[in-house]
């Protein structure tokens, strides 16, 4: 399950960065975030699987990626940056959902993405999550984390 989830997350991130946000990227060796303010995007899932998917980015990287996606100069966190982080986790979650779904049975239902800003890197960032996928880009590293589990009542 963890291996399949890891693979699905990285594949979904790759699809996103290959199409809508043109940045070079690799799977990072270390799952650590740089110090400083961060944006956290999360999306809840329910149904046959339960849990959440979370993306954590340094604000500088979120600004960089938003600027790349929109072809605009962006110098500080604004609504577009928040919306970009929301759309990133939404698209990644959609890719994971497709990977885990069968032809006629959805793996889970997606909630609406939420974004919040933290003044520093999220503490104890890995304790709640079964998997962490660190992605290194030319402008910094971000993490996608998930604690998805098959629902016992499904």
């Amino acid at each position: 399950m963890e291996q399949q989830l890891n693979q699905a997350v990285f594949s979904a991130v790759g699809s996103l960065l290959d199409t809508m946000i043109p940045v070079s990227y690799t799977l990072a060796q270390e799952a650590s975030l740089q110090p400083g303010p961060h944006l956290l995007g999360s999306i809840q899932v329910q149904g046959r699987m339960l849990g959440s998917l979370v993306i954590a980015l340094p604000t500088s990287l979120a600004i960089f990626m938003t600027a790349r996606m929109l072809d605009e100069v962006i110098e500080e966190v604004n609504d577009d940056v928040y919306e970009t982080v929301a759309e990133m986790i939404n698209i990644v979650a959609g890719g994971v959902k497709t990977a885990f779904s069968k032809a006629t049975q959805e793996a889970f239902l997606l909630g609406l993405p939420q974004v919040l800003e933290l003044p520093h890197a999220p503490p104890n960032q890995f304790s709640r999550f079964g998997i962490t996928v660190p992605v290194s880009t030319e402008a910094g590293t971000f993490l996608v984390m998930s604690n998805l589990q098959v629902s016992e009542t499904a």
Binding site: I91, G94, G95, K97, T98, T104
Partner: peptide, 9 residues
């Protein structure tokens, strides 16, 4: 245009 990519959707 959506993230929903399953056949049933």
């Amino acid at each position: 245009i959506t993230t929903e990519g399953t056949i049933d959707k």
